[in-house]
Design a protein around this nucleic acid. Structure first.
Lengths: 180, 180
DNA sequence: GTTTTTTACCTCGGAGTCGATATATCTTGT
DNA sequence: ACAAGATATATCGACTCCGAGGTAAAAAAC
């Protein structure tokens, strides 16, 4: 998704792509060569991108990669109807968010944000005692588990706040567009 | 790490373990059977845990798992000197945090928190233009990328705040312990 | 002029994980 | 009596990803 997402902005070669994906680090762990290049080949075989060999502007020759219509369609399908992991796994979610603007319909964008919003609403119960009874944060002995739950709650609220505002804006835009 | 970490609290059987690991979801994606049971066997082979077959209190017989001294040592090694991914990958970091109290020396705990703190300090530059020049948040066209960076900054500050307080407390405790 | 570094691409083996599938036990509902 | 469902453990094939290694070209350092 990240490969097609970046290529949708403008053509890039593999090495550049690697750096851009890696720079999403902090959110996403950098991608290894052994992952990137086979994946590019796979996307090429699936006609999602084309490559043109160009002389390297700095050193070795590059393979300039360009997204195709098939690739754009694939990207939009992934964004429009993401697998569950892309909603529940923070790393994957942030990747999706980085490219959600490539889904052009605001109503569809709002729908994806709503799925994430609903996931964040589910109360997270992280720790249980011997009997399987949930342990509330104030009864946790470990300061690290206490901190973990504090941070979790706080960051969830931050994201929920943003999601609600964003969903509101998108729906307003969608309504306006439909009413035109 | 999660298996040994949970067993360090009290003995559990595989099925219970699965539910507890899964309940860290929101942070961690639930563990599959095909991952859990081979991993238990691997830990048993490595003498990190022992199993006693016990009649199931509810249904089928269970394998009660208990951590050994070897297992405790292994857990402590993982916690004391975590691989880079455990510092930089949020999912892994939160697992580590959930069990950091099993590292009993406050000075060692503080050291791990400091590594995370240093990682969070590195300014995250997520997006670049065609020329490879960084795009500041205010020049981003996508509201999703803008939100992504806002949320990232905000949640980072929350965690840094907690880390600093916690590191301070731990160092005070370590100093006091050393001074006794 | 030769080595080192940076850029750039590629492959292979191994480790880890999942999903499907299988098995067995006990309780509950019909 | 029988089926269904929750409990509980285990294996296997497929897939993904990483890390180590290799190739090559141009620039920079020595």
């Amino acid at each position: 998704m990240a490969i097609l997402g970046f290529l949708r902005d403008f053509p890039l070669h593999g090495y550049d792509l690697k750096n851009r994906v890696a720079s999403l680090a902090g959110h996403v762990r950098p991608i290894a060569d052994g992952t990137l290049y086979p994946t590019i080949k796979k996307l090429e075989d699936a006609q999602c991108l084309t490559r043109r060999t160009a002389p390297g502007s700095v050193a070795a020759p590059r393979h300039m990669l360009e997204i195709t219509q098939t690739g754009t369609d694939q990207l939009r399908r992934w964004l429009r109807d993401p697998e569950p992991g892309f909603i529940t796994d923070d790393n994957k979610w942030y990747v999706l968010l980085a490219f959600l603007h490539h889904l052009e319909n605001p109503r569809e964008q709002a729908l994806v944000l709503t799925r994430r919003r609903e996931f964040l609403d589910r109360p997270a119960q992280l720790f249980f005692d011997e009997q399987g009874a949930p342990i509330p944060p104030e009864r946790l002995e470990s300061p690290f588990r206490k901190g973990l739950m504090q941070i979790h709650r706080s960051t969830n609220l931050t994201e929920i706040d943003w999601l609600d505002r964003q969903i509101g804006e998108l729906n307003a835009r969608a309504g306006f567009t439909a009413a035109r």
